[in-house]
């Protein structure tokens, strides 16, 4: 029976950790999505300087790991006068990192839409932005969604690293249980399953979006 009590005790820890992980994942995904479209469109800009700025952002964040970026955000940014809470540092590092990978998804998705669609838009006298918004992006998003689904899972996995700057998400809570009770197998198995559940929900959500967005194309 004592085992059961202990398990319920872990349960409470793990549940609060799961909520924090979900929260961190949602905010990081939102920031990553925003940055992915900003940088992805910038990578295709006609202006050399805009392309260069976007390229530097992408290469910088892809060139180092989320782990290093998180420690830089948490420990180095305060030295230049930017103090962030652990959660803010986590969202900033994970979101900017995800955005860098996502920008390549956006760029490739837009380029996957045929040149014929751009030509039809010109023949119908649409502006560049009208063509992008009404013709190119709706088709590109369908191409991007599977990659965005993978990216969302990578972002969720990256949130575990935030435990190392004291964000009390799943991994942090498992470590707490371990240090307080000496139990190892149960807390870590529990959070592995929880991560899998969150990943499955993310995958299902993306599938749903894929179905919604694919009307008209691919026989739908």
């Amino acid at each position: 029976m004592q085992n059961l009590d202990a398990t319920i005790g872990y349960g409470r820890f793990i549940l609060s950790g799961a909520l924090a992980t979900v929260e961190l994942t949602i905010f990081s995904c939102a920031l990553a999505l925003l940055m992915a479209f900003l940088a992805g469109l910038a990578l295709l800009s006609r202006s050399y300087s805009i392309r260069a700025v976007a390229r530097i952002y992408v290469e910088f964040f892809r060139g180092t790991s989320i782990f290093v970026q998180l420690f830089a955000a948490y420990f180095v940014l305060p030295l230049v006068g930017i103090s962030l809470t652990p959660v803010q540092a986590g969202v900033l590092a994970i979101g900017l990192n995800g955005g860098a990978y996502g920008s390549e998804v956006v760029r490739a998705g837009i380029q996957a839409v045929g040149r014929d669609q751009t030509e039809a838009s010109i023949a119908l006298n649409l502006t560049r932005w009208q063509a992008m918004w009404w013709v190119i992006l709706p088709q590109a998003v369908v191409v991007m969604l599977p990659s965005f689904g993978n990216l969302a899972i990578e972002i969720m996995k990256a949130t575990a690293v935030a435990s190392l700057v004291t964000v009390s998400e799943l991994t942090f809570q498992a470590q707490m249980v371990r240090s307080q009770t000496g139990e190892t197998a149960i807390p870590f198995l529990l959070i592995l399953v929880t991560y899998l559940v969150i990943a499955s929900v993310l995958t299902a959500l993306v599938r749903l979006l894929e179905r919604r967005f694919s009307r008209g194309t691919a026989g739908a």
Partner: peptide, 30 residues
């Protein structure tokens, strides 16, 4: 371009728009 229209060899229809939306899109946007 306002005075010029074109029909393409490979149609170049917008696959995510219905026939009606394909025809009505440009007059509204322009």
């Amino acid at each position: 371009r306002a005075d010029i229209g074109m029909v393409f060899q490979h149609f170049n229809l917008f696959p995510h728009k219905t026939a009606l939306q394909n025809v009505a899109l440009a007059p509204v946007l322009t």
